[in-house]
Design a protein around this nucleic acid. Structure first.
Length: 491
RNA sequence: GUCCCCAUCGACUAGCGGUUAGGUCACGGGCCUUUCAAGCCCGUAGCAGGGGUUCAAAUCCCCUUGGGGACACCA
């Protein structure tokens, strides 16, 4: 029998990288085994439901290339895949459980439950529902808004869950309270809906976050009551922030779409997340989607939580960026340049060719698609200020003005403003003046870009073009007296 | 507080009784070089502690400690 895996998010917030990692593992295992990957939307919490979250979820999955064989938009033999559209199914099972004595109606008010909790807080003894209605024989209907249906947890004994990674885990039944199956709004809780659907949809492996371990005893009990065989559980270790607590909003970006807008490539997020908590057991780090599918297995999943390391993510993104064909990279960078206001949709005021050149020059110098703004604004804007350290080092020497003037004049006369003639002019001048070429190159770079780092100067000049270069050189020369005065005053 | 899970360099990890404890990121040094990157070379750095079992323990067992998670009419 082939495996059937599901990813069952609830659309209550933006898709968290932790959940996405879970989706990736499920997807990878399904693809590795030639099984099915099912997307099921657990939208039974009508208070927290958010259409934006649902859209973001689809966007995120599609961005990463996590296609589903069954689910919303795809359909499938077990449709519908929105739990909110399966209410009657849950009611049927809930009613059956009540009739068979596994569950009961409860009409305790919120107020009573609140007081109960209050009293238990001081007492510090058993927590949870006190089973007030367990023996009252209340008759009802799942749609009744003044009642809930609770599961009748055995008063003694232990429940064992079998986890693929951790073996058998035991829970004392006395620790469990009579949890709610159907809420007073008629919607099922996660516990009921999840078990019913996993059974009906013939899910073979439940791969989900670690945080579910403690509830899984309830799930086993439900499977038993329903006379069903539980699937294989694979509880995945959670993802931590740098401070080792569960990765959350306060650690910064947590939505997969945040990473998209920060300039990370989808294949990087996929590769990186796949390696967070799973290892191919060899030394590979950069792995293609196909390699990941081919290598993925349950044995490689780690048992301990792992820290989401942005530094390594940056490295990996850089690796992928460098490996990309220039044209593809330029295309990926485009939306970022537009967003940053450097160009419009038609490359104006520049050209596709210009953007391609900038991309080519910057390819090995950026870590994210958004880095151009920081790394090389001079390709799009005139430098308004000059790097401070650079200024002190390269602009304040006697003779810098005349040097710039000399070079500017010679460059202006060049009819062929390309790499080697430019280099020739500079090297010749250096020789003529009896100085190292660096003595000319550094001040020139600063004058042209305002920065002390960047692509090779000659390439940079060619890309910017003669007019721009000459204009910036003249402007820099004019400003040097001011700069000298300013820095002299400080020193 | 109760229950549960986890424990190898700062981070991600390999190791599944016998290894000089390996790789990657980061960090430090060097090479290359017009700067910054990239690339290449080298290096610093780890089995939480204590008991067992065994000829032999990072690997198996127990305890301690530490970290994390769960304790809803949320998932």
């Amino acid at each position: 029998m082939s495996v059937r895996l599901r990813f069952a998010p609830s659309p209550t917030g933006l898709p968290h990288v932790g959940n996405i990692r879970t989706a990736i593992f499920n997807w990878l295992f399904a693809r590795n085994q030639g099984g099915a990957f099912i997307l099921r939307i657990e939208d039974t919490d009508r208070d927290r439901y958010s259409p934006e979250a649902l859209k973001a979820l689809f966007d995120g999955l599609k961005w990463l290339g996590l296609d589903w064989d069954e689910g919303p938009q795809a359909g499938g033999d077990y449709a519908p895949y929105f739990q909110s559209q399966r209410i009657e199914i849950y009611h049927h099972y809930a009613q059956k459980l009540v009739e068979e004595g596994w569950a009961y109606y409860c009409d305790c008010t919120e107020e009573r439950l609140r007081q109960l909790r209050e009293a238990q807080k001081d007492d510090s003894r058993e927590a949870g529902y006190d089973r007030h209605c367990r023996g009252r024989g209340i008759v009802g209907n799942p749609i009744d808004t003044d009642k809930v249906i609770r599961f009748k947890v055995p008063l003694s004994g232990t429940t064992r869950i079998n986890d693929y990674l951790r073996g058998t885990i035991e829970f004392d039944n006395t620790l469990l309270d009579d949890f709610v199956l159907v809420k007073s709004d008629g919607f099922p809780t996660y516990h009921l809906a999840n078990i019913v659907d996993d059974h009906l949809m013939k899910i073979t492996h439940v791969m989900r976050g670690d945080e579910w371990i403690s509830s899984s005893a309830k799930h086993i009990l439900l499977y038993q009551a329903l006379g069903q065989k539980p699937p294989m559980f694979v509880h995945l270790p959670i993802i931590l922030g740098p401070d080792k607590s569960k990765l959350s909003k306060r650690h910064g970006a947590t939505s997969i779409l945040d990473y998209k807008s920060m300039g990370y490539l989808p294949e990087v997020m996929f590769n990186f997340l796949a390696l967070l908590g799973w290892s191919p057991k060899d030394d590979r780090e950069i792995m293609t989607r196909d390699e990941l599918i081919e290598s993925f297995n349950l044995e490689g999943i780690n048992q301990s939580a792992s820290v989401f390391d942005m530094t390594k993510l940056n490295w990996m993104n850089g690796e992928y960026i460098r490996a990309l064909p220039v044209d593809r990279l330029a295309r990926e960078i485009l939306p970022f340049l537009i967003r940053q206001g450097f160009i419009d949709e038609h490359y104006r005021p520049y050209s596709q060719e210009y953007i391609r050149e900038v991309t080519r020059l910057m390819q090995e110098r950026i870590k994210t698609l958004a880095d151009l703004q920081e790394e090389c604004p001079y390709f799009f804007n005139e430098p308004v200020e000059y790097d401070e350290k650079g200024t002190q080092k390269h602009f304040l020497k006697e003779g810098t003005e005349s040097l710039l003037e000399l070079i500017t004049g010679r460059l202006e006369e060049l009819s062929d403003f390309s790499g080697s003639p430019i280099e020739e002019v500079i090297r010749y001048t250096a020789e003529e003046l009896g100085i190292g070429a660096g003595k000319i190159i550094h001040p020139l770079r600063l004058a042209i870009s305002g920065m002390t780092k960047g692509p090779g100067l000659f390439e940079l000049m060619v890309t910017l073009g003669k007019d721009t270069v000459v204009r910036r050189l003249k402007k820099a020369r004019e400003r040097i007296p001011d700069l000298m005065a300013k820095y002299k005053a400080y020193n």
